[in-house]
Simulated scan of single mutants.
Amino acid sequence: MLLAFLRTIVDDPATIDDLYQETMLVAWRRLEEVDLSKPFGPWLRGVAGKLVLAHYRKQKALPSFWSEEVLAHIEGQFRAISIRAGDTWEEKIIALHECVEALSTAHRQAIRGRYFRGLSVEELADLLETSVDACKKRLVRARKLLAECLTRKKVFSASGDFQ
């Protein structure tokens, strides 16, 4: 959820990695301050939000639409996801993994290589010993099968939107 939160408000993968690691370090140092009777996620995202704002201010590149209020709204959305029965982020991830496991071996390898390992299409084609065009077609088919499975599990709507 922390990575999803950071990806919501930062678009540079290297910066996301840096902010994730920095958040974890700050959280580790301040762990004794956490009230363990309350949910941990909102506290951790609060730490991350402050680090994101500091990052943007330091870069003198704070987007004009970003503010403490925007971060509070995004946090509220993440909090809502985590408390909806049958609709938590963890349940969606479990459904995704179940759907990936239900794919054929070829489709599963393509999805895992591209999205779990972050391989480029060219790298994936080499790994799968296929052409780039064939690899692209396999990925398209695999994503379609995943969308159908996730729709059956009510994670996607019929239009393919994340629920």
Rank of each mutant, 00 (worst) to 15 (best):
E68Q: 13
K136H: 06
W28S: 10
A54K: 14
R138M: 02
D133Q: 11
V121N: 06
L150I: 11
A27P: 03
R143L: 13
D133K: 10
I74W: 00
E75I: 01
A54S: 15
I94W: 06
A95T: 09
T88G: 10
F65I: 06
A72K: 03
R108T: 03
A147C: 15
F116T: 10
L145E: 15
K92R: 14
Q109C: 05
A72Q: 08
A54N: 15
Q21A: 03
E122G: 02
A110N: 01
E101I: 07
A106Q: 11
V100E: 04
V52W: 13
S64R: 11
C149L: 11
A106E: 13
R29N: 11
D133E: 10
E75S: 04
A72D: 09
K137T: 00
R29E: 13
A61W: 00
A110Q: 01
T23L: 04
R114L: 13
A54E: 15
A61G: 12
A134K: 10
R45P: 06
V52M: 09
G86E: 05
R84G: 12
Y115V: 05
H73K: 13
K58P: 02
A142C: 12
F78I: 02
H73D: 12
A142M: 05
Y56H: 04
R30K: 12
A134Y: 04
S82H: 15
I93G: 00
K50F: 03
W89Q: 10
A125D: 01
P63G: 03
F65R: 03
L139R: 02
S131L: 07
